[in-house]
Amino acid sequence: MTDYKNLKLIATSSPHIRGNETTRSIMLDVIIALCPALLFACFNFGFRALTVTAVSVIGCVFWEWLYRKLMKKPQSVGDLSAVVTGMLLAFVSPVTIPYWMILVGGFFSIILVKQLFGGIGCNFVNPALAGRAILLASYAGTMTSWIDPISNKAALIGSNADAVTTATPMALLKSGAMESLPSLPNMFVGSIAGSLGEVSAIALLLGGAYLIWRKVINWQTPVAYIATVAVLTFLFPRYGTNVEWMLYNVLGGGLMLGAFFMATDYATSPVTKKGQLIFGVGCGLFTVMIRYFGSYNEGVCYSIMVMNLFVALIDKHTKPARFGVVKSDKKEAAAK
C-alpha cells in the first residue's frame, strides 16, 4: 500500500491544470501561417527570398540570445518570438536587401525595440515594423528599390545582380499611372513588385485564416483594418473607378501582411475585442491618410506604428462592463 507519510507533495495555488496552448505553440502557429507567403516569395523573387529570410531569422535569434546572455537574464529564444520577428522583418524588406543590412535591422528590432523594454510582451511598437522604419530612414535607396518579378523571371534563380527595377503598385497609384498598373489578378496572386512577403494577397489571406481558425488572433483587428481602407478608398477614389481604386488599395502596399500579421501583434494591440475593432479602424484611417496626403506611397507600416502608441489609451477606455452593473444602474448612479 501507499506510504502516505513519505509522499513528496507540492502545494500550489489553484488551478492545478492548464490549457495546452503555450507562447511557443502560438509563435509556431504564426510561423506556419507565414509559410505560404514565404513559398510564394521564393517563386516570385527567386531563391534569394529564402536566404534573406533565413539570414534575418538567424540574426534576430542571435541578437536575442546574445542580449539575454550578456544581461544574465533567463534565456528566451525558445519561445520562437524572435523567429517570427525575423521572418516579418524580412517580409517587409525588398528582396535585394544586402545581408548585412538585414542583420542591422534585426539588431534594431530585437535589442532596441524589444529587449531594452523588457522582452516579449513589453515592447510598445511592433519590432519588425520599427526595424524596417529605421532601415528605411537609414538606407532609403536600397530599401526602396524594387525588382520587377515579371521581367526578371529568368535571372532570378540565384542572383539579383543585374535585376531590372520597377515601381511598386502603390507608387503608380500615387502618381495616378493607372494604365501601368499590374492586372488585378496579378495583384491578388502577387506577381508584382514590392517587399518580399507582402506581395501575395492570397497567400497572406490563407495564413490569416489559419491564425483565426487556430484562435491565435481575433478577426476584429484585420477585418476592421481592411474594411476601413476598403470603405474609405471606395468612397473617395482618386483615379479610375471606385471599385478598381478600392481593390488596388486593398490588395497592394502590404495591407494584408499588416492587417493579419503586424496589427495583430499581441504586445502592441489592445486586449479587448472592442479595443481591437477601434485599433483596426484607426490603422485603416491612418493608412488611407498617409497614402492620400503623405509623401510616402504606402502607409501600412507607419499607420500601425502610430496606432501602437494609442494602445494604452484604447485599453483604458475599452474595459469590459463590470459584471452585475447594467447601464440603467450607471445612469441612476450618475443622476444621484
Partner: peptide
Amino acid sequence: QCIRCGKCV
C-alpha cells in the same frame, strides 16, 4: 512572461 495576448480577458 505575459505576452499580452488578451486570452485571460
